[in-house]
């Protein structure tokens, strides 16, 4: 059952990425050139919607947060720095 949910959610995830145009090289790299802000608009909208929903649901006691990604400053930053290079190179 969990797998059915995963497949279903994945479908919508991929669909939304495609419709936002983030499956294209030029959209990703142009974000870093600041000639096309689609990536930021997309990411931040998703963040805000999900934040409101999740914190609201937790406030109502309907969900508990899953284990959150660990924070270790050096790793997160170093990973992010390397990740950006790959992202701007490939556009994935």
């Amino acid at each position: 059952m969990n797998y059915v949910i995963a497949l279903f959610l994945g479908l919508f995830f991929g669909f939304s990425l495609n419709k936002a145009g983030l499956t294209k090289y030029n959209k990703i790299v142009n974000q870093f050139r600041f000639t096309d802000m689609a990536v930021l608009k997309f990411m931040m909208t998703a963040l805000v919607v999900a934040m409101i929903g999740l914190y609201g649901l937790r406030g109502l006691g309907l969900i508990k947060f899953p284990t959150v990604p660990a924070t270790y400053i050096v790793g997160n930053l170093a990973g992010g720095l390397l990740f950006g290079v790959g992202m701007a190179l490939t556009g994935y």
Binding site: L9, S16, K41, F42, T45, A46, L47, A50, L54
Partner: peptide
């Protein structure tokens, strides 16, 4: 991108 972002937001909540 705002509309697509809202869709992803709901996927994240679900």
């Amino acid at each position: 991108p705002y509309v697509a972002g809202i869709l992803l937001g709901f996927v994240g909540i679900l």
